[in-house]
Nucleic acid binder design. Structure first.
Length: 443
DNA sequence: TCTGGGGTCCTAGGACCC
DNA sequence: TCTGGGGTCCTAGGACCC
């Protein structure tokens, strides 16, 4: 083997190149696209119910605002430091996500959409010397066409691409692109990055590998996979192989059929009465039906739960969960609502003392979803799909055109005012998906 | 009373991710 | 007053069977 070009003879990972591209502070960047005043000021986006910070711009991070910080704890600081605060606007973020992915597809036909702000691209066909240049072009094009700033990490495996992306994000000198298919970069960075940054190493695993003497990613890569498997299951073993350039996680070009679906929400205030809990789970069941219908899936059982909050120390605690079985699979909101109500009816109790249970959250969960068209029919209790299908389709069409909640089943008090609904007090307009909320330009 | 060696399926819980 | 929501995968252990 020649000393001069070992990388040509033995490229890490056999020449495969996977890129991971993601939006920087994605939700915040979406807000910035439509409001130039947000440029260069600290911005955060809150979780559902305006609970805690889930996206922060660099300026907000510099102020010490942490991922998951409860908003009520940082509200004062935000006011003082001029942090612009937004409720989450998933309609907007989902649409911006589609736009970025449309650009990605111009650069690679093989794209896996991994999450709302991250996609893997197969760049194996791009010559090694051109990968960085292509990644820069990709970033520039996404920024020009969607307004979203991104970072790109390239590696021979998904795990190394994720690591490269992390490096691109945290090393300003790299200008948003890091290529770990380059053996020089690979050797340089793996012994400089903490192993706890590796994709799949969470808190528990970080403690375990630390006990094995691991500090850097290179240390983790060089562990014997067998004891790692003992301690961290096959998941840990896969990470070792992936860090060595042996691919264990293929690109999923076709999204897998989802296995479960849930709609769960905290109440905006504590809830003590049965009618409100029933109304909430009925609303969640309605939403569940919409989600299932969009993907042609059905379910023949639904778990209903509601519980008090662990934060309410001193209050009586109660956590309820029950599974309602249906005669056959369905995605009909009317049936799902009935099931949700039954779940509450079965489990509702009045508190024994004079202190009522103060519920904080309720939800509906389904698992074992199946394509409705292929699901077995019941002998007894068969539902009228010929009627339900078109009815639900008509309802979905109205709600899609005129906004969610325009048509609701007249059940379970769904037409009554919802006093428990999740808070979104600082939500931006749905700039890109509602004509009435289009941004206005003044010239 | 004690003695065996497989299997499968299901569930709960842990861990991790975004 | 106020602390998100929605997923996936893996394993251990119990129940049950032959």
């Amino acid at each position: 083997m020649s000393d001069s070009a070992p990388s040509q003879l033995d490229p890490i990972g056999g020449g495969r190149a996977i890129a991971l591209i993601d939006g920087n502070s994605f939700y915040c960047s979406c807000e910035r696209v439509f409001d130039p005043k947000l440029a260069r000021v600290p911005v955060i986006v809150l979780s559902n119910n305006d609970g805690c910070a889930i996206a922060r711009t660099a300026e907000a991070k510099a102020l010490g605002i942490k991922m998951g910080d409860p908003f009520f704890k940082i509200r004062e600081q935000c006011r003082r430091d001029g942090v612009r605060v937004f409720s989450s606007n998933y309609t907007l973020y989902g649409d911006m996500s589609s736009r970025t992915n449309a650009v990605y597809r111009d650069f690679s036909p093989r794209v896996e959409i991994y999450s709302i702000d991250e996609s893997f691209l197969d760049l194996s066909d791009v010559h090694p010397d051109l990968r960085i240049e292509l990644a820069r072009d990709l970033r520039a094009t996404v920024l020009a066409w969607t307004g979203i700033p991104t970072c790109v990490g390239i590696g021979p495996t998904k795990t190394l691409a994720k690591l490269a992306n992390h490096i691109a994000k945290t090393q300003p000198a790299l200008d948003g692109v890091c290529d770990l298919t380059d053996p020089v970069a690979y050797d340089h960075w793996l012994c400089r990055i903490s192993a706890s940054e590796v994709w799949g190493i969470g808190r528990a695993s970080a403690t375990k590998i630390e006990a094995m003497g691991v500090d850097t990613v290179a240390d983790l890569r060089d562990l014997d996979p067998r004891p790692v498997r003992k301690a961290m299951t096959v998941v840990g073993e896969r990470i070792i192989h992936e860090l060595r350039g042996v691919s264990c996680l293929p690109l999923e070009l076709v999204p897998a059929q989802r296995k479960g679906c849930a709609v769960t929400r905290s109440f905006s205030r504590r809830v003590e009465d049965r009618a409100t809990v029933e109304q909430a789970v009925a609303a969640h069941a309605t939403r569940l039906g919409e989600k299932l219908r969009r993907e042609g899936l059905g379910t023949d059982h639904m778990t209903v739960f509601y519980h008090t909050s662990t934060h309410d120390r001193g209050d009586p605690m109660r956590s309820v969960s029950t599974t309602v079985t249906l005669p056959e699979a369905t995605n009909d909101s009317l049936v799902l609502i009935q099931a949700a109500q039954l779940g509450v009816a079965r489990t509702w109790r009045e508190a024994p003392g004079d202190r009522p249970w103060r519920y904080s959250k309720a939800g509906v969960i389904t698992t074992d979803l199946m394509p409705l068209a292929a699901s077995p029919r019941a002998l007894i209790g068969q539902m009228d799909r010929e009627r339900s299908g078109p009815l639900m389709a008509a309802m979905d069409a109205c709600n899609s055109r005129f906004g969610r909640g325009t048509v609701v089943p007249a059940r379970a008090g769904l037409t009554e005012k919802r006093t428990w609904s999740t808070k979104f007090e600082m939500r931006s307009p749905r700039y890109t998906t509602q004509v009435a909320e289009l941004p206005t330009a003044h010239a």
